[in-house]
Every structure is written in structure tokens, then in C-alpha cells.
Write a protein that binds this DNA or RNA. Structure first.
Lengths: 323, 323
DNA sequence: CTGAAAGCGCTTACAG
DNA sequence: CTGAAAGCGCTTACAG
């Protein structure tokens, strides 16, 4: 089933057959019809490698993920994939997954250079990772999930972390909490920083205890918190996963959630639903954000020198049972 | 940076250059050296499309997933990706993710036929899905995650579900539970069936309440169970996610876990750790299973008429706090 | 609007 | 062991 055969069956040249396959407008209606008939009668499917060889497009993008360990507890993978897929599939573009491991970034780089990938989306890159810088230096299409740690001219999509934390602060205040605290994320990440800043802007006198987004750190942080500040009655925990670890600590200490202590999480991840009680939390529209990342990447691919953009989504508060 | 240039720099023919790039043994040592030097001095990277056009291999495999909704609560995606990646990456083979949506299966089929994908791994396919059958009929490389509902000549990788359920039964009996029950998975899936069968083989007089693997169904099933059988003191819940939903129901009814009723789950998913108390559960080695799926698929790709195989992994019991 | 022809960058029989 | 040459299946200036 090659274009050659289709052309022969339709009685036209290979060039014309190619034109109708690719939807070029400048083809006579009758010829177009003949070709279309030939295509369906032969069950023709274009060979992608041959096309790719001349168009210099792979019609594939990469999704670079952190390794499984760091991924673990990240509830977003399915949503991210789903969002990207939504925009990419109708275009016939492949989504290739690369979970970070030894040599992954180099691999991605070379795939990009050899034309095996048209661009990449970087998720949760280590702030110290040199790859994003190398990619933009090489002028390769790339978009980041989340603002980079230090300002750099790179396209990214993020949620307004600061505003989300403020939402949580206002919620706790509206609940009449008097002694408010927060368990933070890691302070060497943008999300960790912004969620703290945004919260303190709303609740300047909040007690601050540090965590690192993992469940385990949520347990430890809450133990420290009730040790140093036994009268807390409201806490904003910067990730649902930490909140999931922290709540049982409260229960074991005899405190009820939300009656004695109100809890607001962040992410609206699956941990929000598997917590008891279910978490009131700040929601980021992950799927929509992922779709936007794909769109931004596609734009860069089709318009090589297009401007660097950052698009920020507003979060919303999902009120459930914990606060 | 084409092979042509490398050949010129090395002073050999394109054919010879190609041979050393592809590690053909029959190349004189001095020429091989010259070519290798030329490769590194020019920074040559082979164009994959050109290679693919002649070798008829895409060096890419597809991972077909259920849609996000069904995916949700499936804790395994990251582990599956990780396992497949482990075997596929060193070979330079791309993993392309396809989340089921309108037209996905057709898409995968055509990608396979047009040589854009060398094979596919099917995860959680709807038992009624005709695609697996079509694929094997077409002689295309495919492996299933999990035994197919009706016997068919297809390669698959699974955990020994029956044995896992038996493990759970023995655990409950060793805990001296007298009134044992089980909350099942959907009975139109192999996993749902086998986990029930295996459990009943061990605890023939168990009370049986049906669920469908979702958290919500775990809640409902547990409510029914304590309604009809208030003296239960041990229950095997066929998925961790259902167990996560069921435990709060027990708590609200004034029963303590594991003191009043012992719980054993299945999967060792993230829900096992976010439950309170943490779940004793049956563990499937997902990552290893995924790696094996990749290996089986690769074998089919390289050896077209290789035999159909099924490989079954033994599960193990992870004892934590719930039972 | 249409076709003949060149060319994308590689691999692989086929001779030697 | 090595090279000249054909060929993989497509797209796209270039003429007409």
C-alpha cells in the first residue's frame, strides 16, 4: 500500500495523490474524488517514516517525568497525560513518555536533535537541572510544568500558587480559627516557596513548620507542630499528601478534624479523597494546564521563533470535610 | 551531520560508515577507528526516520491505557511506566502512551500497520473490547496486562490472583477471626473473579458482598456488610481503594481496625499507605511485571512467529497495621 | 491545477 | 572486508 499504487489506481501522479492525502486545496474536485476512492479501496496508510524524512517532523513530543520515587505520591500523572493527549491525539502526534533515569535527559536531547522528537514538556525538573537551560540555548521547543526556580526565558504553565495559598488562609480565617499554622513544602522549589509566601500574606502571624511535600514529612511536621503549639486550631498543609500523613497524628493526640483543628490541603489529589475526613483543599486544574502545555509546545514547534510565554491558571477552593 | 559527511571525514564509503554505526562486526579495525573518530568529531547522530524507512522498524511501542476516569484510583500507572522504561530505554525504544478515548484503538491499529509502532501493551482493556482479538488476528505484536476474560491465544503477564486471595484468607484465619467476609471486585473481570475464587477456596464459609474496585463501592459494600452481618471480625477487601473507603465506615460504626475487625486489602497501591491504619495487603510486583511485558513484546517483535506465552508472578503478603 | 524529477538519509544485497 | 548502487515511501520546488 504505497502512494505509488494509490496514484496508479486513481490514474494520477504521485504528486497529486500526495496533495490530496495532505489536504492541499489546489486539487481538482474530480481528481480528488478519484484519489479518495483509491485510498479507501486500497486501505492506504501513509508511511510515517518516509514522510518524516522529508518534512523533518517526527510528529511526536516527549513528556519528561521525574523518576518513580519522586513520582510516587504524585497523583497527577494520569491527569497530565490525559490533558496532553486531548490536544495531541487529534493531530496524530505521539506522546512519548520518558521517566527520568540514568541518561534520560541526554537521550531526550539527542532525540530532539536527530529529529525523533519535535519538542518536550518538562515536569518536576530538579531546580538544579541544567537541561532546560541547554534546551532553550539550543533553540529547541520546550515547555515547563511550573515556574522555573530562577527566572529564565522559558515558556511555562503554572497555577497561581500564591493565590491558592491565600485562598486557604482566608478559609481558615473565615472558620474563626485563632491559632493558625502552616506546614510548608520544600523551600528550594517555587511551589514550596509560593505557597508559604501566599499564605503568610493572608495570615502573617501563622506558625510555620517545614515539610517537603512527602507524606512522611507531614507526619513529622505535625508531631512537631502539636508539640510546640498545642493550641493550634487551623492548619494549611501545603500538599494533600502531607495532610494525609498529618491527620492521623492529630487523631492519635485526641484532636478531632475539623472540630478541634481545621485542615486545608493543596492539590486536590487522590490523597484528598482517601483521607479521613476528606480534605478541603486548593484545586489546580491539572488536565487543563497539561492541555495548555501541549498547545504552547505545538506553537513553538510550528512557529520556531515565537515569543516566550507563561500562562498561569487560577486555583479554586474545594470545600469538603476537613476544614 | 549526515552519514555521508562522516564517511567523507573518515575517508570511507557510506556503507562502511553505516556498518560501524550499527556495530556490524565485519569492519577492519583501523577503518572502524577512523569512522568512530569522525563520528565524535562531527557529533553525528543517525536520522531515525531514514533508518526506519529502510529497516521497517519504528523502535517505538505503545502503551494503551484505559481512560482517565477508569484510570483514576489506579495507582499503578507510574509503576507500569517505570518497569517498561527500564527494559526499553537502554535499547533506544520509545514508549508512546495512548490513553483510551474516541478512536484510540483504531489509531493504535493504524500506527501499527503503517509502521509507526512496533507493538503494543494493552492495560485494563475492557473485557468486551474487540481490539486484542483483531491484533492477534492481524499477527501484530501485542501483550496483555492480565489474563483475558475468555481464553484466547494471546501473550499476557499477570499476578497469581487466586494465590494472592488465598494468602489473604490464611492471614485472616491466623488472626483467629471467626466471622470472615469478603468485598469482591467486579465479577465480569478476571481479577474480580479470581480474587473471589481464591479466597473462597481458603475460607469457604465467608460472607460475600460485591464491589467493583472503586472507593465508592467499598463504602457501600461495607455499609451493607455491617448491616447484614454485624459480628464480622475479619474482611478481605479485593482492592486497597475499596478498603480505603470501607474503613471509615467501620470507624463510624464504632468498630476499631484491627482490634474489632481485621482488614486485608489487595494491590499494595498508594491507597494502602494513605489509609488509617495502614493496610495489610497483597502485593503484586507491578514494576517487574511491566518489565516482563516489555520483554515479551520485544521478543514478539524481533521473532515474528514466536510462541504465545503467559507469565504469572507470585504475590506476597505485606503485613502492616490493619490486619 | 498537474506531473516529472529530485531529494530526504539511511541500509543492504551484490560484486569484487 | 569494502564500495557502488539501488531502493525504502514520501514531499515539494519547478515547469508547464
Amino acid at each position: 500500500m504505497t502512494l505509488e499504487e494509490v496514484a496508479r489506481v486513481a490514474g494520477v501522479s504521485r504528486a497529486t495523490a500526495s496533495r490530496v492525502v495532505n489536504g492541499a486545496s489546489s486539487v481538482d474536485e474530480s481528481l480528488r474524488h478519484a484519489v479518495q476512492k483509491a485510498i479507501s479501496s486500497t486501505g492506504y496508510l501513509p508511511n510515517i517514516a518516509a514522510r518524516s524524512l522529508v518534512t523533518r517532523r517526527a510528529d511526536a513530543i516527549g513528556l519528561l517525568l521525574p523518576d518513580e520515587r519522586r513520582m510516587d505520591g504524585d497523583p497527577h500523572l494520569a491527569s497530565v497525560v490525559s490533558g496532553v493527549t486531548r490536544v495531541v491525539r487529534p493531530l496524530g502526534i505521539h506522546l512519548v513518555l520518558m521517566m527520568t533515569g540514568p541518561g534520560t535527559r541526554e537521550q531526550a536531547m539527542s532525540d530532539l536533535r536527530r529529529g525523533r522528537l519535535d519538542g518536550v514538556i518538562l515536569v518536576h525538573t530538579d531546580p538544579a537541572d541544567p537541561v532546560p537551560g541547554q534546551l532553550i540555548a539550543a533553540g529547541l521547543p520546550v515547555v515547563l510544568a511550573g515556574r522555573p526556580l530562577k527566572p529564565m526565558p522559558i515558556t511555562y504553565v503554572d497555577v497561581n500558587q500564591t493565590a491558592g495559598a491565600a485562598l486557604a488562609g482566608r478559609r481558615l480565617k473565615s472558620l474563626q480559627c485563632n491559632r493558625i499554622a502552616t506546614i510548608t513544602g520544600p523551600q528550594d522549589t517555587p511551589a514550596g516557596q509560593d505557597r508559604l509566601t501566599g499564605f503568610l500574606a493572608e495570615v502573617p502571624d501563622a506558625v510555620v513548620v517545614h515539610g517537603d511535600f512527602t507524606r512522611q514529612s507531614g507526619v513529622a511536621a505535625m508531631e512537631r507542630l502539636i508539640g510546640c503549639c498545642p493550641d493550634v486550631d487551623g492548619v494549611f498543609i501545603a500538599s494533600d499528601l502531607m495532610a494525609n500523613g498529618a491527620i492521623p497524628v492529630l487523631h492519635r493526640s485526641g484532636r478531632k478534624v475539623p472540630d478541634d483543628v481545621a485542615i486545608v490541603g493543596f492539590d486536590d489529589s487522590s490523597a484528598a479523597l482517601t483521607s479521613e475526613p476528606e480534605l478541603t483543599t486548593v484545586r489546580q486544574p491539572i488536565t487543563d494546564m497539561a492541555a495548555e502545555m501541549a498547545r504552547q509546545l505545538l506553537r513553538q514547534i510550528t512557529e520556531p521563533r515565537s515569543p516566550v510565554t507563561s500562562v498561569v491558571f487560577e486555583p479554586s477552593l474545594v470545600v469538603r470535610d476537613s476544614g
